[in-house]
Computed example of a mutant assay.
Amino acid sequence: MKFSTREDIEAPIEAVFDMLCDFEGFERSAMRRGAEVQRVDRLKSPGIGMMWDVVFSMRGKMRKVQLEMTRFERPQDMLLAYRSPGLEGTFQVELMSLSRSRTRVAISLEVTPLNLSSRLLVQSLKLAKTSLTKRFKLRVAEYAKTMEERYKRLA
């Protein structure tokens, strides 16, 4: 199952990529929402091999996920692979410069079940795919607007 969307941002590609590399900010945001996030690699700068262990509640059950940065090509591409008991997938962010001050961000999330109970979970998600896709697109659009505002404040 796959979710994807695109947004255009009024900011240069380098600035957008730098904002997307604020991994500590993403960690804090997840913790504010109740997740436990722990960085498990020893890298000093963003790149391939970054890893996190994440524990969060979803549909009334605690989920454990391990995230790993598997592709990091500045300033146009990032790929995070995730794995949990029963599920695996990818989260990809692609950037394309439309002009000096405009960037297109394409984000996709792919979910693959690994066992029967996960297949049932994914099947229930497929039944709600329309509403989940709307929520996914809305969240990405909100974050894109936040990045635009942050860039305008800093520029």
Score class of each variant (00 low, 15 high):
Leu43Tyr: 10
Asp53Arg: 07
Trp52Tyr: 15
Glu142Ser: 05
Val55His: 06
Pro75Tyr: 09
Asp22Glu: 10
Ala106Asn: 09
Leu121Gly: 03
Gln92Pro: 00
Leu132Met: 15
Phe17Arg: 00
Asp41Phe: 04
Arg33Val: 03
Arg42Phe: 14
Val54Ala: 06
Phe72Gly: 02
Leu79His: 09
Thr5Arg: 02
Ser29His: 13
Arg33Met: 13
Leu116Cys: 04
Glu36Pro: 00
Ser99Pro: 03
Leu120Phe: 13
Glu10Asn: 09
Glu110Pro: 00
Ser4Gly: 07
Thr146Arg: 09
Arg100Cys: 10
Tyr82Ala: 02
Ser99Asp: 11
Arg59Leu: 15
Arg119Tyr: 14
Glu7Cys: 10
Leu80Arg: 00
Val40Gly: 01
Leu95Asp: 06
Arg39Thr: 07
Thr5Ser: 12
Ala35Gly: 10
Gln76Lys: 07
Ala81Val: 11
Ala106Ser: 14
Ser84Leu: 04
Ser118Cys: 08
Gly89Ala: 03
Phe17Met: 03
Glu24Pro: 00
Leu80Asp: 14
Asp77His: 13
Arg83Trp: 04
Met58Glu: 12
Leu67Asn: 12
Gly60Lys: 02
Gly34Asp: 10
Thr130Ile: 09
Glu7Tyr: 02
Gly49Met: 04
Thr130Asn: 07
Leu67Phe: 15
Thr103Ala: 03
Leu114Ile: 08
Asp53Thr: 03
Ile48Pro: 02
Phe23Val: 02
Thr130Gly: 08
Phe91Met: 05
Val16Phe: 07
Ala141Leu: 08
Lys61Tyr: 09
Gln92Lys: 10
Ser4Asn: 11
Ser131Gly: 01
Leu79Phe: 05
Pro85Met: 04
Ala30Lys: 08
Leu80Gly: 00
Val55Glu: 13
Thr146Leu: 13
Phe26Asp: 13
Thr103Lys: 01
Ser124Leu: 12
Met78Trp: 01
Gly47Pro: 06
Thr133Asn: 08
Met62His: 06
Val122Ile: 14
Glu68Tyr: 00
Glu88Met: 07
Arg71Lys: 14
Phe23Asn: 00
Cys21Asn: 14
Cys21Gln: 06
Asp22Arg: 01
Thr90Asp: 14
Thr103Trp: 08
Thr90Met: 05
Tyr143Ser: 07
Ser4Leu: 11
Lys61Cys: 03
Asp18Pro: 00
Leu114Trp: 06
Leu120Thr: 04
Leu125Ala: 11
Met58Ala: 12
Met31Lys: 12
Leu121Lys: 01
Ile107Ser: 01
Val55Arg: 11
Gly49Gln: 05
Pro12Gln: 08
Glu68Trp: 01
Arg83Tyr: 03
Ser99Asn: 02
Phe3Met: 10
Phe91His: 13
Leu125Met: 15
Gln76Leu: 05
Met58Tyr: 15
Gly34Gln: 05
Ala144Asp: 09
Glu36Met: 06
Ala30Gly: 02
Lys129Tyr: 13
Gly49Lys: 01
Ser29Thr: 12
Leu67Met: 14
Ile107Met: 11
Ser108Arg: 07
Arg32Leu: 13
Ser84Glu: 12
Pro113Gln: 08
Met58Lys: 07
Arg135Thr: 13
Thr70Tyr: 01
Met51Tyr: 01
Arg119Cys: 11
Leu67Ala: 09
Glu10Thr: 07
Arg42Gly: 14
Met50Ala: 05
Gln76Pro: 00
Phe23Ile: 03
Val140Glu: 02
Leu95Arg: 02
Asp77Tyr: 15
Ala30Gln: 12
Glu27Met: 05
Leu98His: 06
Arg74His: 11
Gly86Thr: 07
Leu79Glu: 15
Ser117Tyr: 12
Asp22Ile: 00
Phe136Glu: 06
Val65Asp: 02
